[in-house]
Nucleic acid binder design. Structure first.
Lengths: 185, 185
DNA sequence: TAGCTTCTTGACCATGGAGTCAAGTACTGC
DNA sequence: GCAGTACTTGACTCCATGGTCAAGAAGCTA
C-alpha cells in the first residue's frame, strides 16, 4: 500500500528538515522545531514517524553512519598500531565536536533505537581491535581497559555537548593532551 | 530587628535541608524538594531567602568553601612543583566527583552569586600559581595554557555530573591518565 | 487573653516540552 | 466532478519546573 502524494511529499520534507535540525541542534531538538522547519504540524510527524524515536531511526544512517564509516576507512589506510589507534580516537572525538547529532548517537543519548545501537556496537567493536593491537605493540599503556576506552569517548561527548564555546582548534589541541596520557610511561 | 521564633526555626531548618539536598543532588535540585525536606512550603523559602540564588549564598560556604580550603592547605604542605600541581588538580577533580554541589559551584553552574564567584576566582588564582611553578621547573608541558587548566576543571565537572555511574576508583584511576598527558614530552 | 504583627501556606500563574485526537482538508479513482 | 478515504491540523491534555500572593495561622506584647 502506497502513500498518497501529499503524504509522500511530507515524509520527505520531514526527513530533510530533521536531518538539518538534528545536525545543528542534536537529537533532542524539540519536535515543534522540526515541524516548523518542515512546514508541517507536529501531529504529522507523530503520525508519520511515531515520535522522536522513529524519526531518529529514519535519519540516523544518513546523519552519522556514513561519517563513522569514513573514519574507519581512513584508519584502515594507515600503518602502525599507534597511528591507527590515535587517528581513530581523534576522528571520533572531532566528529563528536562537529556534529552534535553524531555525538548523541555515540552517547546513546536518546530513545534507543535498533539501528542506532547497532551502529554504536560496531564502532566499539572496531575500537577495541585497535586498542588490542596498540597495546600488543607496546604503544599504549597496558592498564587502559576497554571500558576506559568507551568511557573516553563518552566523556568527550559530554564535553563537546556542554562546552560549545571552545574553538575547534583549541578542542583539537587538547585532544593531543589526552592522547598523550594514554601512551606507556 | 529580630526574627520571630518560628521564622528562626524555619530558616535554620531550610538551611540544613538545603545543605543536605544540595549535597546529594547539586545546586539545581527543584525548590519543592528542598521545601519538602525542610518540612515547609516553597513559599517560605522564597520569602526567607529570595529564591535559589539567595539560598545558595546562604549555604555555599559550609558546602564547599571549606573543602576547597582543605585542598589548598594540603597542597601547601607538599614539596615540589609537580606534586603540588598534581595534588591540587586531583583534589579538585575528586571534590567534583564527591560533591555535585561543589561541582556546580566550580562550574558556576548556577545563578551567579557574589560569594560563589569570589570562591571560584580564588581557586583559579591559586591553580595558576601552581601551573606557573610547575612549568618553570619543566615538570609540566609548556604549551599548557591557563585557559587549558580552567578547561580541564570545567570538563571534569561536566563528566562528573553526566557519568555518575562510574565507580570512584575508576574515576580516580582515569585521572591518572589525564595528569600523565600534561607532563612534558 | 485580645489584638496586632509577622509568618506561612498552598493554590495559582507562567513556561516549555511531549504526545493525542476530533474535525476539517485534500487527494484519487471512478 | 463527486464520493469516499487518507491525511493534516492545531488546539488540547499532561507533566515538571520556577515563581507569586491573598488569606489564614501563629507568635508576641501588654
Amino acid at each position: 500500500m502506497t502513500l498518497r502524494a501529499d503524504a509522500r511529499r511530507n515524509v520527505e520534507g520531514i526527513r530533510r528538515a530533521a536531518l538539518d535540525v538534528f545536525r545543528t541542534g542534536g537529537l533532542t531538538t524539540p519536535m515543534d522545531e522540526v515541524a516548523r522547519a518542515a512546514g508541517v504540524s507536529k501531529g504529522t510527524i507523530y503520525h508519520r514517524f511515531g515520535g522522536r524515536r522513529g524519526l531518529i531511526d529514519a535519519v540516523v544512517d544518513e546523519l552519522v553512519a556514513e561519517r563513522i564509516r569514513a573514519i574507519v576507512d581512513e584508519v584502515e589506510a594507515l600503518d602502525g598500531p599507534l597511528p591507527r589507534f590515535e587517528a581513530y580516537l581523534r576522528g571520533i572525538w572531532l566528529l563528536q565536536f562537529d556534529e552534535p547529532a553524531a555525538n548523541d548517537v555515540l552517547m546513546r543519548a536518546l530513545p534507543d533505537s535498533k539501528p542506532l545501537s547497532i551502529l554504536c556496537d560496531q564502532a566499539c567493536e572496531f575500537a577495541l581491535g585497535l586498542l588490542r593491537d596498540a597495546q600488543a605493540a607496546g604503544a599504549i599503556r597496558p592498564d587502559l581497559t576497554p571500558e576506559d576506552l568507551t568511557h573516553l569517548i563518552l566523556e568527550r561527548g559530554t564535553i563537546a555537548r556542554a562546552c560549545p564555546h571552545q574553538s575547534r582548534s583549541d578542542y583539537d589541541r587538547r585532544l593531543g593532551f589526552t592522547l598523550r596520557g594514554l601512551r606507556p610511561l
